[in-house]
Design a binder for these strands. Sequence first.
DNA 1: TATGAATGAGATTTCATTCAT
DNA 2: AATGAATGAAATCTCATTCAT
Lengths: 197, 197, 197, 197
Amino acid sequence: MSEPRELRARGRDTRRRLLDAGATVLASKGYHATRVDDVVKVAQTSHGTFYLYFSNKEELFRALAAEVAQEMQALAEKMEPLRAGATGRARLQRWIRQFVELYRRHGPVIRAWTEAEIGGSEFGRLGTDMLTQFTSVIVTRVDEVAPPDLDPTIASLVLVAMFERLNYYALTNQVRVEPDAIAETLARVAHASLFGG
Amino acid sequence: MSEPRELRARGRDTRRRLLDAGATVLASKGYHATRVDDVVKVAQTSHGTFYLYFSNKEELFRALAAEVAQEMQALAEKMEPLRAGATGRARLQRWIRQFVELYRRHGPVIRAWTEAEIGGSEFGRLGTDMLTQFTSVIVTRVDEVAPPDLDPTIASLVLVAMFERLNYYALTNQVRVEPDAIAETLARVAHASLFGG
Amino acid sequence: MSEPRELRARGRDTRRRLLDAGATVLASKGYHATRVDDVVKVAQTSHGTFYLYFSNKEELFRALAAEVAQEMQALAEKMEPLRAGATGRARLQRWIRQFVELYRRHGPVIRAWTEAEIGGSEFGRLGTDMLTQFTSVIVTRVDEVAPPDLDPTIASLVLVAMFERLNYYALTNQVRVEPDAIAETLARVAHASLFGG
Amino acid sequence: MSEPRELRARGRDTRRRLLDAGATVLASKGYHATRVDDVVKVAQTSHGTFYLYFSNKEELFRALAAEVAQEMQALAEKMEPLRAGATGRARLQRWIRQFVELYRRHGPVIRAWTEAEIGGSEFGRLGTDMLTQFTSVIVTRVDEVAPPDLDPTIASLVLVAMFERLNYYALTNQVRVEPDAIAETLARVAHASLFGG
DNA sequence: TATGAATGAGATTTCATTCAT
DNA sequence: AATGAATGAAATCTCATTCAT
């Protein structure tokens, strides 16, 4: 079914259009409220074509998620060791700035994970896994520097939690905050929690 | 329609059962996937009865949300001024401990807000409003003590973000973390970000 | 889902109407070509109602098949020992006459089994099982009287084959044959094949 | 459309491959469940190509049926006059043996006729016609020898019914019966019904 | 106050056939 | 002669809401 047929240029284009349309609709309606109908309308194609490329709605989002997961994984691995001092904080801030950028581009998909988590769909599990994996890299870094009385796992979860959620607030709510301000504040709080003020 | 008819004891009981059932189902399936059918099954009553008490599905969740909103408002107002030092941190931790407890009881509804936010339902807006209101109290407290180079609004958002999300992770994911450990870590990070290590 | 809810008189009536409608449509269109739409039209009800009683199309036919299977089983068990001579043949003929009657009433369902057999649906398997069971009773009777050089199993299959198919031809094709003539010829051929002319 | 264009060797080959694929799929899925998609996959060609050779799905099956019909007609005409006695029976058995062989090769198509009969498709009618024609030859032979109190038409239908169905049972059901055993039993029963034991 | 039954709009999915290269 | 891609009509199924008792 979903056995990835060899695609010619046109086919690849259509598939891409469907993926992009999926992301767009996801952004405005959320996972559960997204209709295949909306997606094909945005992609300017037909129902039939949709099922030519994805065997169902969930698969479209899995494909979308896989793309994002890959980027997140890559970003996680780019995180350098944490360091005290202004230089260390600046370095952390630069990394967070990239996270903000990534969230800006893929926030809808990441949010959709969360939404799908509840109810135990395949897709939701993918999100949980991603977060877990992402966090585990952070744990490594935190572990290297955390004071002995701070549990590195919980601390890392706190960091990921605030990274993710603040970006979420910034993206959805009226709260108009500049990406740089976000990154700065996050870096400051994260750094302070590990190395003190 | 929804103008609360005078209810006898039996009626009040049925209504209560429906609300509780709503919360239960919300917890396991999330907002969009919750079916009236599930709710009435759990409440051990019928479709017809449901619509005797709520004019539609959304109204049930609004009622549920109103209850939670009230508790959150009360908790926010109980937040005392923030103080440096071990005593200040301990006091903050006690307050956070109460938040953890509240989240433990009402997490599903809070999560559902988030889920419903996307797509712009009435219910979703209610959640946004709640968070905004809740945050605004925090802002007041943070404003009293934040160093001049820290934006109190963003900082407060960071705090709310990490409060909410860490609890969320703790409640959904496999991550088995004790309520007290959560409160402690959150208090520590929050305190450090405002007063230094 | 299909857990047989307790049905009140009205519900039982609707369910019955759907079953009868199913049999009617089956008769005119066959299994694969039958549309839920046709069924509900004949039953004078709605799509929604259909799925209140059967969780899908196949289940309707399974229910129908179960009813027929029960009648067939009962008829098989009513078959008396086979005997040579005019009396024996007359007795066999009376039994076959009942089979003809049964086929006249339930032919469409029996035919649908055959149609569904190919492709391996649940429903198809039910048909195979029924035939097997039905045949096995015949085998018992044939075994009591068959000459030593006649394999009772194959012989019984031949009998069942001609019983079923002749009725089928009579019911579908233009071939206008009277039920009594069918029963007589079948009895004659069956009797001759076991006891000679 | 379907007016057979002059085909070069390559075209003939493709057409043949499609016909064979059609028979294969028919065998495993039955008429109604056969998809053009399955056929072209087995034939290792494309949708577009399919419609180059057949103007629609039904036409493929008509072509297939025509081939089988021709063989059946030929076999029917090869049936020699029926005779009493061991020699006559042996002769009949040899003919039936050929029928078994034919059914073994073309059973799927013959079964598909039956399946398609219901619902009144062109293809189904073709099957009915074929059976009628086939039976009419048998009637001629039976008429020559049937005792006066046996209706030759019904008797012939009985014979055809048991020929067809027993082979069908043997081919589909688990019933493992040897071709020779089938032919022998069929010959015995048929012969007995006409000439006595 | 309660409830079993019914409804129908709308969502997903399938597949024969046509198109464009 | 061949084929990858596209289409859209039609089918199945879901579920919030209303009805009738």
